[in-house]
Structures are given as C-alpha cells and as structure tokens.
C-alpha cells in the first residue's frame, strides 16, 4: 500500500521552476533517498511532502488523503500528527535542555511525558545527557536529540533533509544505525542526501535534476541485497 503519492507536482517561485511534473509513489515502510545537485529542488520537495508548503500544481496524497488542498491550519494538524522532521542544522531550541526539546514535540502534539521522552533519548544513546543544553552537546549528539524528537510522537513518515550533512564519519554511522533501526521498526523514511554511502542504505534512490526526476535507482537490485 502507498503511504505517499505525488501526482504531477510543480512548484514555481516567480520564474524559478523549483519542481516540474514530479510523480512518485512511496509505499508503507519504505526507505527512500533523494539525491541531486544543489538547487535541484530536494528541499522544496521535502517541504511539500512535509506539509510546510503547497505545490503550485498537482496533488499530494498522504495516508489516503489529498493534502494539496488543505488550509494552513489543516496542514499544521497533519504535520503534527503524521510527520517527523530531521534537519541538517538540527534546529534545537537553544534555551531548552535535550529532554525539554523532545518534550516540546510532545507538548504541541498532545501531552508532555517526561518518562517517555527520556526513553526516546535513551534509545539514541543520550539518556545521560538529558539535562544538557544544545550548546553543551556535540553536533552528532544534537542530531540524535533531533531524531529522538522526530520519533517521539510515532509519526508514520520521517523526513530527513541532509541528516548527516554536518556530521563526521563516526557520528554519521551512529545516525545511520538509528535510521536502520527505525526502518526495521517499520517506519517510512525519506532522506535527502549528497552522500552516496548514505543514499545506498535506502531501498530506492530518486535523483532530481533541474526540478525533475532524472532517474530512480533500485539499490537492493543494484547491490544485490
């Protein structure tokens, strides 16, 4: 069953065609990579899938519902309930501790639950650092807090825009291990990356060029997995 379908999606900023006629289906539990040169429209696509922006044309079907006609408020609700976001720059709230940063997501979703948030930090190996402020954490640790936050409300779709872009190799492999775990748990994951190694972990890789899908690579076939 498809969790996500993009049908003839275009996004136009003034005279910049950031996306043109994108068609894509992502099935439940799939791990998908998106690659492409800078400016090819990867983040634009993530914004549309993540309900943070609307396409200029075409429709987005998420979990059986067309979200391209939703109001800003409706999009907020869908984003809160169904999407988990991970960013290249981590985007933690600087004045809140790691634990509180995770609890913020719970707060906007439903009820803050300290115990559950602590367990989520434990799962990314940061149980001991719960009371630290982001400025007291390394980049890799911050990214893991960001992942714990993205996972806390059990989203059906996890979107990650260059999650390892700012990390060294050691931290990259820690983060990838967490992604593998998420995938094993049956989460649907879409990862934007410049790193072929990272892209290869996914089942399929979509390559964007000039706002269009240039090709789709089936990694399992190619690697013989």
């Amino acid at each position: 069953m498809n969790l996500l379908e993009l049908k003839d999606i275009s996004k136009i900023y003034g005279n910049v065609k950031a996306l043109q006629d994108i068609n894509l289906e992502v099935s439940q539990g799939e791990w998908l990579s998106i690659m492409g040169p800078s400016g090819s429209g990867k983040s634009t696509m993530m914004n549309i899938i993540g309900c943070m922006d609307k396409p200029s044309n075409g429709s987005v079907i998420l979990d059986g519902a067309d979200i391209s006609k939703e109001s800003a408020r409706g999009l907020t609700d869908i984003r809160r309930d169904k999407i988990g976001l991970i960013f290249q720059q981590f985007h933690l709230i600087s004045y809140l501790t790691a634990l509180e940063n995770v609890m913020v997501a719970q707060y906007y979703h439903s009820m803050p639950d300290e115990k559950e948030a602590l367990e989520a930090l434990d799962r990314v190996g940061l149980g001991e650092r719960a009371k630290h402020l982001p400025s007291q954490l390394s980049g890799g640790e911050q990214q893991r807090v960001c992942i714990a936050r993205a996972l806390i409300n059990y989203p059906m779709l996890i979107l990650a825009d260059e999650p390892t872009g700012n990390l060294d190799e050691a931290n990259e492999s820690i983060v990838l291990d967490i992604f593998k775990q998420m995938h094993a748990d049956g989460r649907t994951i879409i990862v934007v990356t410049h790193d072929p190694e990272v892209a290869l972990q996914a089942q399929r890789t979509v390559v964007l060029e000039h706002g269009k899908v240039a090709r789709i690579i089936n990694n399992e076939q190619d690697t013989g997995r």
């Binding site: 993540g50 408020r73 907020t76 609700d77 809160r80 309930d81 976001l85 709230i93 906007y108 936050r149």
Partner: peptide, 10 residues
C-alpha cells in the same frame, strides 16, 4: 519556524 514545523498552531 521550527515550532511550527513541529506542529505548533498559531
């Protein structure tokens, strides 16, 4: 922006 991305309403 982040809070909104996390699902904060206006």
């Amino acid at each position: 922006g982040l809070k909104k991305a996390l699902g904060a309403s206006n």
